Computed example of a mutant assay.
Amino acid sequence: MTSRLIERTFSLRSTATQVVMEKPYILATTLGAPGGIYECFAPFIEKHFTIVPYERFVQSKGHSADKIQAVFVWGKTLKVDQNLLQSLPNLKAVVNGGVGVDHLDIPLINSFGVKVSNTPHVVDNATADIGMSLMLASARKIVEGHIFSKSRESDDFPESSLGTDVSGGTLGIIGMGRIGYKIAQRAQGFEMKILYHNRNRRPESEERAVGATYCTSLKELLERSDFVMVVVNLSPQTHKLIGAKEFAMMKPNSIFINISRGLVVDQDALVDALKAKIIRAAALDVTYPEPLPRNHPLLSFPNVIVLPHLGTHTMETTQIMVERMVTNALAAVTGGQLPDEVKA
């Protein structure tokens, strides 16, 4: 075999291998950029996919549009609207990182023959942990103590530094789903009395396992709880579920914690309740908008903790979320059933 023929043979083999080995294309906010998946997770995604950065896609007016089969949504920087869907003729799935999909128009996406998935279950422990963290930090004034240590002008603790006990207190959980139940399990360790209000009552065996008591009305839960934690999904039924009327039902020494979605709470009513000292304090992992403007009234209260939606913000949970996104996307591009498909 001549050298020219050998070269041609290897060239053909190499081309064939490239065709076989070419990875599916996905569209995603630039990894490591603001609003994108952290760059440390890039090697795992790139092992399975060729990533088309959304910013380059927009600038090039549709770079590789016909090759893109999945869109990775992380946060809300990449908007999946009709224009984007029309520009991706071979799109098979919109894969969301996280549980909440209220920012996605699922009926619209489905109308293009495109499936939607999220990453449920994997976020449960981390979100329950942040709920407990907020309750403890607010009750024991952890943030205020830290600030005192950094900028104290005296060694004497002011009377205002007195916190309130969590152990033995009554925790009211609004929304006893997977995450709410895990919070109840954790609260048991603090010997708390646990009340819950849900659309559907849990089996008595599950109630007994965590020592939880079902409240048929939200009013009953609010009136009896020292700590009120909201863990519901955002829906038309839960939009501004907690407002002025609900805050007025709470104990004056109660602490309000929200780890669900910002729009579940009427923030103006919360501000008014804090100003009027209708409740003791509030601790929020979610707001609207996210993050809050720096001049927002909620950021001015010494008895309010506001986090920038850190519920699932751990290395371990984020890794699992990215893995689930890859699993769902691979199922979509190979014509399989998406393990975590979300129906309209």
Rank of each mutant, 00 (worst) to 15 (best):
M229I: 15
A212K: 00
E207R: 03
V231T: 13
M229R: 00
E220F: 00
E223S: 12
V228R: 02
E206Q: 13
F227S: 04
F227W: 04
T213M: 08
G211P: 02
E223D: 06
V230D: 06
A212G: 08
S225W: 07
P236G: 10
N233E: 07
S225L: 10
E204G: 01
C215P: 09
C215T: 08
C215K: 10
S205R: 12
A209T: 01
A209N: 07
L218Y: 06
T216W: 05
E206P: 01
R208V: 02
V228G: 06
G211V: 00
S205Q: 14
S235P: 03
V228A: 06
V231I: 13
E206C: 05
L221V: 01
V231S: 15
Y214S: 05
E204H: 12
R208E: 13
S217N: 03
P236L: 10
R224D: 12
P236I: 07
L218N: 03
T216D: 15
E220M: 08
R224N: 12
V232F: 07
S225F: 05
C215H: 10
R208G: 09
S217R: 11
M229V: 15
E223V: 11
S217T: 15
K219A: 14
L222G: 07
V230P: 03
T216R: 12
L221E: 06
V228T: 10
G211D: 00
V230I: 14
E206G: 02
T216M: 08
S205D: 13
S217H: 11
E204N: 09
F227P: 06
E223R: 14
L218H: 05
L218T: 07
